[in-house]
Design a protein around this nucleic acid. Structure first.
Length: 471
RNA sequence: GGUCCCUUCGUCUAUCGGUUAGGACGCCAGAUUUUCAAUCUGGAGAGAGGGGUUCGACUCCCCUAGGGACUGCCA
């Protein structure tokens, strides 16, 4: 019952589009399970559909997995390159009598299917029980699997539990097309077998295929892998994932300011749970993950929660790394930062990172840092400076700060408080004006942090700009 | 049409026959307050419907409804 073989999982996307979020999660689950069991995680590109497969899509898959940090343990396998081997297996099936040549034309097949459909039965070709004469062999034909007519097939799915089908309802699927190209269901079985895959974790849209594939394994006398059909992810509106939901490709999430480690955390939690744990590291995910704990109901994407998880990982992220990401975000926005601005971002990031949920928000929070001198002051600040008393007070603050050497948050905080006390006023008489001079009105962190983020030189310069701008 | 899968707060989920049905995000209120956030505290909020089984069902069984997948010489 228990499979003694070392665990081998695989992610097997077809290169016909982006790597979307659902596929990314499937890859994640395969990866986590392999890591959890000390097994191997493989990548197979299912490019047997020559019409729709593109190199760009293959690259998109690589890029997406790279960004998410999911590396396969071996070189990827391209399914199309194994067509010869697939045909070999079909010959074996033919020899065993587990497959047959079907000379029906596409039109005849369609007619037969419709008739069978109307009666609610599975399609059966008359060629299933007819021996072709030798001269017929040159004629175009497909090769179909000869499925059992009686009995039932049970797939003991790791997520869905035991699922059973009457064999009579499973039709004889095509193994080899009339042009000799192997089909998906055949190729999957052969490749998974040859790759030594022990656990097939994939979307539950493949659940029905599991029964058909199971039958092929049996016909070949091969040891079957365990299946785990995980529910699909839906968009935030409950509908199927589509471009309309804003982002389909995983790379889009990078552009929206999410961190890959946050993505892994959030995606793992979508459909899988380990008690009440919400925030967990990669190491914990690997330690805890088991396909048995994957739920059976489809889950929706929740961008608010993703943002919350992202905020957590953002705070833990390295400042230099965040500075690079913010710079990239700004570049994408058409506002590439100068070298000086990048340096300013670096020093300011520690003071604003707990205020942002994405690197995009981080870029917004840094807007006050990026402003060029002299700042344009908002009306509120202009009004404050127009008041002689306030102006005089802020000038005194400026003089005092000029003499203040230890430019760190705690010291600055104490200094501002001390100044307020010496002036005999509350912070309310100082804060708005100081902030206005420093930022021109753009939102910024606490005053001491704003001063620290700006740095001594820039802070004092901005103050002096403002104080002298009145005339 | 046929086959198969799914159904706990708005969302993600815990529960694995006995709980005031727990947590997280979001939401509302309050605290904090020098802007904007963040943070802290509190609150509202759920077992699709109907039958069984049982001393007792969110939990097991059946039916209905709703959602989804497959039904291809696509994957």
């Amino acid at each position: 019952m228990t499979d003694p073989r070392p665990v081998v999982t695989r992610f097997a996307p077809s290169p016909t589009g982006y790597l979307h979020i659902g596929g990314a999660r499937t890859a994640l689950f395969n990866y986590l399970y392999a890591r959890h069991t000390g097994g191997t995680f493989l990548l197979r590109i299912e490019d047997t559909d020559r019409e729709r497969s593109t190199e760009a899509a293959v690259q998109a898959i690589y890029d997406g997995m790279e960004w998410l940090g999911l590396r396969a343990d071996k070189e990827p396998i391209f399914q199309f390159s194994r067509a010869e081997r697939h045909r070999e297996v079909v010959d074996e099936l033919l020899a065993k009598g587990a497959a047959y040549r079907d000379f029906l034309t596409p039109d005849e097949t369609t007619a037969l299917r419709e008739a069978a459909h109307a009666e609610g039965r599975a399609l059966r070709s008359p060629w299933r029980d007819r021996e072709p004469t030798p001269d017929l062999l040159d004629k175009p034909h497909v090769i179909r699997f000869r499925g059992p007519l009686e009995g039932e097939t049970v797939v003991d799915d790791l997520v869905q539990g035991p699922v059973r089908w009457k064999n009579a309802v499973l039709d004889d699927l095509v193994l080899l097309r009339s042009d000799g190209a192997p089909t998906y269901n055949l190729a999957v079985v052969v490749d998974d077998h040859d790759m030594g895959v022990t656990h097939i974790i994939r979307g539950d849209d493949h659940l029905n295929n599991g029964a058909r594939q199971s039958l092929i394994y049996e016909a070949l006398g091969w040891e079957k892998p365990r299946f785990a059909h995980i529910p699909l992810i839906h968009g935030s509106d409950g509908a199927k994932l589509s471009k309309r939901h804003g982002a389909t490709a995983v790379g889009d999430y990078a552009d929206m300011g999410y961190l890959p480690e946050a993505m892994r955390n959030y995606l793992a939690r979508l459909g899988w749970s380990h008690g009440d744990d919400e925030i967990f590291s990669d190491a914990q995910a690997i330690e805890w993950f088991d396909v048995k704990d994957v739920g059976r109901a489809p889950a929706r994407l929740d961008f608010d929660k993703l943002a919350h998880v992202n905020a957590h990982w953002l705070r833990l992220a390295d400042d230099a790394r965040l500075a690079h990401l913010v710079a990239a975000d700004l570049g994408r926005r058409g506002e590439p930062p100068s070298q000086a601005q990048i340096a300013a971002i670096q020093t300011a990031i520690p003071f604003v990172k707990e205020r942002a949920k994405t690197t995009l928000e981080l870029a917004d929070q840094l807007a006050f840092v990026l402003k060029a001198r002299p700042l344009t002051l908002d009306e509120k600040t202009q009004g404050l400076l127009a008041d002689a008393e306030t102006h005089a007070r802020l000038s005194r603050l400026n003089e005092r700060l000029k003499l203040f050497a230890s430019w760190d948050v705690l010291a600055l905080e104490a200094e501002i408080k001390a100044f307020a006390e010496s002036e005999g006023v509350g912070l309310g008489k100082i804060g708005p004006g100081l902030r206005g001079m420093l930022t021109g009105g753009t939102p910024s962190p606490d005053l001491a942090k704003t001063l620290a983020a700006l740095g001594r030189e820039e802070s004092l310069a901005r103050m002096e700009d403002a104080l002298s701008s009145r005339a």
